[in-house]
Every structure is written in structure tokens, then in C-alpha cells.
Design a protein around this nucleic acid. Structure first.
Lengths: 301, 301
DNA sequence: GTATGATATGAGACAATTTCATAATTCTAA
DNA sequence: TTAGAATTATGAAATTGTCTCATATCATAC
């Protein structure tokens, strides 16, 4: 049974127009074509679709069943086409974000919350669990944006600057290092360092400070959640280094002290990696703008 | 955007097969054809449906949207086709019944109740309100069976005998005519006759007895519901004539008396009118058989 | 870099759909 | 009942679209 959308539209039109000739008018097609069409369909289906005894062609029981299908299916198709047209002119799209940095959740959530309000038709998601091959995933269109602090030169991918931040040393206020105005690589000797559970290269403390200085802490404890890290730090089970937008919330708590890394402080830059094709999509630039604003808000205090 | 079912099947197949070449195999079609097909679709839609950067062709965000449509729509189409195939081999169908006689509800309901059990796929309905042009409606396929006691010769329509019945006189046991062993046309003179609200020609009392004898009752009261007619008769507000399958339930009640019409009794025959095309449909003959059985059951007491 | 597997493209063959012209119905109203 | 109008059916030719075949191009892995 060789059913096509054309047939569904025909059935619907004949029913609405109340006859084949009128339906042909509406569809801008010959009456003959419609006649051939339904004849072919009836032959294929082996079922009479219309009552021919009466003159303005009328649907039979089977015809009504087909009409019902048309009434179910055609709107679904139109809905999809509407979405495609939104997609074409950039009102809709997909924004699946991969984040390489654990702590980024803190600012990303509020950003996405705002984003959702302006871009209801964009399908937003955060995809954890591909911390390391995020860039290949970006190229394969498995994700649409990667938050990263290690820009690479990669054809088809652009790294757009998001904002600068400082990795900051955090310890319990009772901790000996709290006495110093800043901490240096050497100060980590003998300390227990609490980090996110990722490779050292991806952790600012290591890549920017300890590896260059060839310093090894006494112990490393890996913890998934930022809140838990802070908890452990507060109870003096170790020290940590976290981005400024995270320590903000404990900066003025008497339980913690926060200190710059090195006398001059360390500054890092965060990037959004997007495919060059998507770079100029309105909702992409908008998301990046929102991220900058949110970061500034978290850092200004 | 020239979407066709073929495209939906293709999208689905490519997704399931995980690539275009494999999908082509499954669909018994050239890989080339599929390539042309999706290219055409992408041009029309103005949207990329697949990610071409990676080699085993993969769905893009838009492609997934289309896949979702395919997964919604294709099963609906298959369901309809299954119904059509049921229709072709007679497991499904429509059985909209028009009844010309009011009292037929009494036996028709139990019949349909049984019918529904054996023929779940048949769409059953009773269509009241076309008491008089039921036969034209049958020809126009607005209904599929007409219960009638006045067979006509009509091309394309067959009258199948259902069962015989007797119109029976009913009165309150206190009524004077209760003394007689049977009632004649003349006995209706001076009586109040309670009937269904239809033309005289369609009422057995008139067509079979009063019109031929040129007798006019003192008054006629028209009542819709059988139960109400019996109520009025019981309280001696008039007499009535009802089919034997109806009076059965009051025959042994002390409130009523039932008497034959004329010394020999009057017999009528009920027919099912169906289109000749449908005459041999299994579910049609089955319904007629059920009707006969039910009538016999109601009449045998 | 080359081999291999996968997708794209162009031209021609083929099939399905539409149109045109006209026939055959059915309906309507006198 | 019978024109006449309106509606649907049909056949053949034209058109359009889809598929195949052959081959090019591209991606990936070794």
C-alpha cells in the first residue's frame, strides 16, 4: 500500500471541500489527478475509500479511518516544519555544553537559567562525563559548546574569550599558612591538597604552580563536589585551590582564609570553544555574553 | 519542504543502521539513492540533517527532530494499514444500524452487547433520528443495516428475514376489554390509544387493523418510551398495541392483560435491510443470526 | 601516505504523477 | 421525465521526480 502524504492531504481536502472537484480547486491541481490518485490508493489498499453512489463524493468508513490518520499526522508534520523554520532563522537550536572544569557548574547554572528565559526554543543541556575528549565531541556535533581554559588551534573551532579568573588558595582560618599574605609553590610541601578528581594537567594548581616548581604536596585527596571540598578545608583536613568565583562565598566567613597564589597572583582565562559555523548564531553570542556578565557579578565582591 | 514517508523511513533506517551504506542494504536500494534523497531533503528544508564531519553519517540536532517525527508517524501509519487489512478480510468493519421501529431497542441492545464480544474490531452504533429516510441513508452508506418491517424492492439492497412477531393488545387488568378473549378493530372505538410518536402507516395497529377497518380511536396519545407507555396503560389512561417481545415482561403481571388482535391473531415479519455488497460479510450474517436467537429467547415464554 | 571504507555526484533509465481532452455518471429543476 | 448542469472517470501524452550505474571525493586507520 503505497501511501504518501499527498494522499492524506487529498483525503482531507476532499472531505473539507465536500467533493473532488472543489478539492482539486483548493489544491491547485486537476480534478483528474485527484481522481487518478484516489483510484490508485483504493486499488493498493484494496478498500473503498469513497461512496460513489452519491454524487458529491463522500468518505466511506475506511475513508474516515484514513481521514483520522491524516488529522493526526499532518499537524505533526507541520509542527516539525515550523521548528525547522525556527531553526533556520536562529530562534531554535541546540546548546549542549561540555565543561572541562568542575567548578564551572557554579556560574554555568545561573547563566543557563537566564538563557532559557530568552531562548525557549533552544534545547539546552550540560553534558558531563566527557571532560577529556570534549573537543572531538564538539567537532562531531555531539556537543555545541565547550568551556575550557586551554585554547588550541583547531580548524573549524573557535575559542572565544569568556573571562579571566584567579585560582585562589583556601585553608581553614586555623591553618598555619593563614599567617602569610600569599602562598607560594614551596608552601604546598607537606600539605594535604584537595582537588577535583581529574588529571593534574587540568588543575590550575598543578599546571600553573606545582609542576613548574617541581613541588609535590604530601598528599592529594580527590573530591567530586565543591561543597564537600570546602567542608573538608573548613575542618582542616587539607587545603585547596579554587577559582575566585567559588571562594567568593567563603571569603568573608571566619572559618576560612583565602590567599593569592604567589606574590603577584596567578591569572587564568576561560574560553568557550564553538564550531566556527555556529560562532555568529544569535543565541551563541548571547549565551557567551550572559556568561561574562554572571562571572563579573560573582567576582566583583 | 517536500517531505515524504520515504524520507522518514530513510532517516529511521540510517539512524538504526548507523550509516548510509548499511541503511541502503536494509532498504534494498542503492546507497546513491539514499544520498540523493537526503541531499534533496536537506536542500528543501534548508537544514543540515546529518553531521558529515564524521564518517559513518550521523544525525544532527535537526536530524534527530526528524527522527522523532518518523518514530511518531510511522507506527500510526502501520496501525492504520493493519486496520485496513483487518477490513479486507472481514475482521473489522462498521455496523451502524438504523431502526425504524421504536420497540426494537428492547431486543437490539442485548444483541449488540453479544455482538461486540465477538467482533471487537467492528465499529457498532445505533443511529436513531432517521426513522424515515433510513433506506436512502443505507444506499449512501451513512448506515449499514436498517431494521424494518416493510420490505421494498430496491437495487443494491436486500431484505433479510429476521423473525416473525405478533402485535399484541395491552390494557390494564381493570379495563373492560380484559373480559374478551381477543380484541377486534371495532373494540378500539372510544378507546384512548397510546402509540410511539411516528406516522400511522408505520404502526402495526393502524396499518394492519384500524386503517383496513376504517376505525378511529377516540384519542391518540403519543409517547416516546416503552416503559412510559406501559406505565400509562397500567394506570388505565389508555390501551396500546406492542410487539410480543415487549409485552412478554408484563404478560404475567397482575396489572396488565394481553390479548391477541383479531380471533386469529396478527403476524408481522421483521427484516434487516443491508446493501447487497455487505450481505455476505461474516459479521453481518453473524449479527442477523444473533438477532434471531435473541428474538426467539424473548418470545418463547 | 596509502589503503579502505563511506559518502557524493552526474547522466541516463525508468516509473509515477499530472495534464488535457473527453466520456460517463448523477443531480436538479422544470 | 428529461434537459442541462455539475460531478466524477478514463486514456494517452507530457512532465516530473526517483532510482541505478559508474565514478569521484572524502574520512579514517594503519
Amino acid at each position: 500500500m503505497h501511501l504518501e502524504f499527498r494522499h492524506l492531504r487529498t483525503i482531507k481536502a476532499i472531505h473539507e471541500a465536500g467533493g473532488l472537484a472543489r478539492a482539486a480547486e483548493i489544491m491547485n491541481i486537476t480534478q483528474s489527478a485527484l481522481s487518478h490518485q484516489i483510484k490508485g490508493l483504493e486499488d493498493q489498499a484494496g478498500v473503498e475509500l469513497f461512496v460513489r453512489r452519491s454524487k458529491p463524493l463522500k468518505l466511506s468508513a475506511a475513508g474516515f479511518r484514513l481521514l483520522r490518520l491524516a488529522q493526526q499526522v499532518l499537524p505533526q508534520v507541520e509542527a516539525m516544519q515550523a521548528e525547522f523554520s525556527s531553526l533556520r532563522d536562529g530562534r531554535a537550536g541546540r546548546m549542549h555544553i561540555a565543561i572541562e572544569c568542575h567548578a564551572c557548574f557554579e556560574w554555568l547554572f545561573p547563566v543557563l537559567e537566564k538563557f532559557r528565559k530568552s531562548w525557549g526554543e533552544v534545547d539546552v543541556d550540560i553534558r558531563p562525563g566527557l571532560a577529556f575528549d570534549a573537543l572531538p565531541a564538539l567537532l562531531k556535533e555531539e556537543v555545541d559548546l565547550v568551556v575550557s581554559s586551554d585554547p588550541e588551534v583547531l580548524p573549524g573551532v573557535e575559542f572565544v574569550e569568556l573571562f579571566d579568573y584567579a585560582p585562589v588558595f583556601v585553608a581553614a582560618s586555623a591553618h598555619p599558612l593563614a599567617a602569610q599574605p600569599y602562598v607560594d609553590a614551596q608552601d604546598f610541601r607537606g600539605q594535604t591538597l584537595i582537588t577535583y578528581p581529574v588529571e593534574r594537567q587540568r588543575l590550575d594548581v598543578f599546571s600553573q604552580l606545582l609542576i613548574p616548581s617541581k613541588v609535590e604536596p604530601a598528599a592529594i585527596r580527590q573530591v567530586e563536589l565543591t561543597a564537600v571540598i570546602l567542608l573538608l578545608v573548613a575542618s582542616n583536613r587539607g587545603v585547596s585551590v579554587l577559582p575566585d568565583w567559588v571562594v567568593r562565598e567563603v571569603k568573608y566567613s571566619s572559618d576560612y582564609v583565602t590567599r593569592p597564589l604567589t606574590s603577584r597572583g596567578i591569572t587564568r582565562r576561560l574560553y568557550a570553544a564553538v564550531r566556527s559555523d555556529d560562532r555568529d548564531q544569535k543565541f551563541v553570542t548571547d549565551l557567551i555574553e550572559l556568561a561574562r556578565i554572571e562571572a563579573r557579578r560573582l567576582q566583583e565582591v
